[in-house]
């Protein structure tokens, strides 16, 4: 467990192939987690990287918009208790819902009219990820991770994209445990001392990997 850290949250987001760094306050003694996902096939829609030992994040409002039959972002993060606000920024109607027997989550927002919003609390367990969709636009999906960690990178892959880099700045010096999650396989912990590689496999064949390094 990390202690004595400032209560900020550094989120590096990589939408549609570009690297975008947001909200990067500087810690006194800090390292940076850097890494790259590489896929030869079966590229996931999103990927999540975080330091699971940190628990400093507080509940907050998480905004997710839907427009043109897609959610933005496609991977969101909120500490348990956070309020997720789904905003319909389209001229069309939607019906946001989630149905996850394992997480025991079932909600149906009903018809979401243009310009309207619906709120859903993050009530699923810390460290788990809920998939939400739309009942009439089945290709739409957004993953919402319940995390107390303040050190998180979210990656969103565009169609056809094979690689994406990420960075989590200002992590505590000495941190080595990194957790990686994609929709296709469960969260996996890596010990980055200072580097580690995780292969993604399907039916015994490797289809991608992520290389992680913690730089002082």
């Amino acid at each position: 467990m990390f202690t004595g850290l400032p209560s900020f949250r550094s989120v590096a987001r990589c939408p549609a192939g570009g690297l975008l760094l947001l909200a990067l306050p500087v810690a006194a003694t800090a390292a940076t987690v850097e890494g790259t996902f590489t896929f030869t096939k079966l590229t996931p829609s999103v990927a999540l990287v975080y330091l699971p030992e940190d628990t400093g994040a507080l509940p907050q409002e998480v905004a997710i918009s839907h427009k043109n039959k897609a959610f933005t972002p496609r991977l969101a993060v909120g500490a348990p208790g956070s309020a997720v606000l789904f905003r319909n920024e389209d001229t069309a109607q939607y019906n946001i819902f989630a149905e996850d027997k394992e997480l025991k989550i079932s909600f149906d927002a009903g018809i979401s009219e243009p310009g309207s919003s619906v709120e859903q609390k993050v009530t699923w367990p810390e460290g788990t990820v809920l998939r939400c969709g739309c009942k009439v636009h089945p290709a739409m999906e957004v993953y919402i991770a319940a995390l107390r960690s303040r050190f998180v990178a979210t990656v969103e892959f565009a169609p056809g994209q094979k690689t994406a880099s990420f960075s989590i700045p200002d992590v505590p010096t000495g941190a080595t445990l990194v957790r990686v999650w994609t929709p296709r396989q469960p969260a996996t912990d890596l010990k980055a001392t200072p580097s580690a590689i995780l292969d993604f496999t399907h039916k015994g064949a490797t289809y991608g990997s992520v290389a992680v390094t913690i730089k002082p």
């Binding site: 109607q93 939607y94 019906n95 819902f97 149906d108 009903g110 018809i111 009942k135 009439v136």
Partner: peptide
Amino acid sequence: GRAAIVPGALAQNA
């Protein structure tokens, strides 16, 4: 229609 698979107002007869 769709509502037989995923019940919902917009899914009814869709």
